[in-house]
């Protein structure tokens, strides 16, 4: 049985079902990270002025986090370029930009690994302070999203790209949807970076 409205727009929504699905998923993600940001605000307000001391003690690495921010922004560019390549019918360029996006995700995680291990070497664990608890919770959850996005993009760039030869528009739409998730992950980091490292 063929799945309806994978490419053509649903008459009720004017969009294909995948597009509606990914946006509904992203709204739930907004509330997930929103709850954690609300927790962050609550902890910061309730820290009785100790927040700056806890932040300083955590010794977060600003240069590494800045590089990671640039890497994620670059990955967002390669992601839209992958989609644009499919719109132009260029499979080779799509694969190039797709793998570049996955590679950027990998670089982000490697840098995050070095950041985390540096913390652990200094015996800075989630239980060490309220600041580190929320830092590890939010950046850890974000890193899991990066891993998920990498797996999703790797599938469409690798085995999933065969769809190009049978239903190009469907592949283009799928890549647009995975791109929406990837940009959301970038968007969350845009707030995590100043909130934890700079402010």
């Amino acid at each position: 049985m063929e799945i309806p409205y994978t490419v053509e727009a649903h008459p009720e929504t004017g969009l294909n079902n995948g597009k509606i699905g990914i946006w509904l998923f992203l709204t739930s993600e907004v509330m997930l990270f929103g709850a954690l940001f609300a927790t962050f605000i609550m902890l910061r307000i309730g820290s009785d002025g100790n927040w700056a001391a806890m932040q300083a003690e955590a010794e977060l690495n600003i240069p590494l986090a800045t590089i990671n921010t640039a890497v994620l922004i670059a990955s967002s560019l390669t992601m839209v370029m992958a989609w644009a390549s499919l719109m132009r019918g260029q499979l080779g360029r799509f694969k190039l930009f797709g793998w570049l996006t996955v590679a950027c995700g990998g670089i982000f995680l490697v840098i995050k690994y070095f950041e985390y291990t540096a913390k652990f070497e200094h015996h800075h664990y989630p239980e060490s302070s309220t600041f580190l608890a929320i830092y590890f919770a939010m950046t850890g959850l974000h890193a899991l999203h990066v891993i998920g996005g990498m797996a999703w993009n790797a599938y469409f760039t690798g085995p999933g790209s065969k769809l190009f030869h049978t239903n190009r528009q469907w592949l283009t739409d799928r890549v647009e949807h995975s791109g929406l998730f990837w940009h959301f992950v970038d968007l969350v980091w845009i707030f995590l970076f100043p909130v934890f490292y700079l402010l």
Partner: peptide, 24 residues
């Protein structure tokens, strides 16, 4: 984008603001 996406996001923003207002 289509209107349905804007309306969905507007609802999300309303709940998000309520969520942020709680700790304040």
């Amino acid at each position: 984008e289509k209107k349905i996406i804007y309306w969905t996001l507007a609802l999300t923003v309303a709940f998000f603001i309520a969520l942020m207002a709680l700790p304040l």
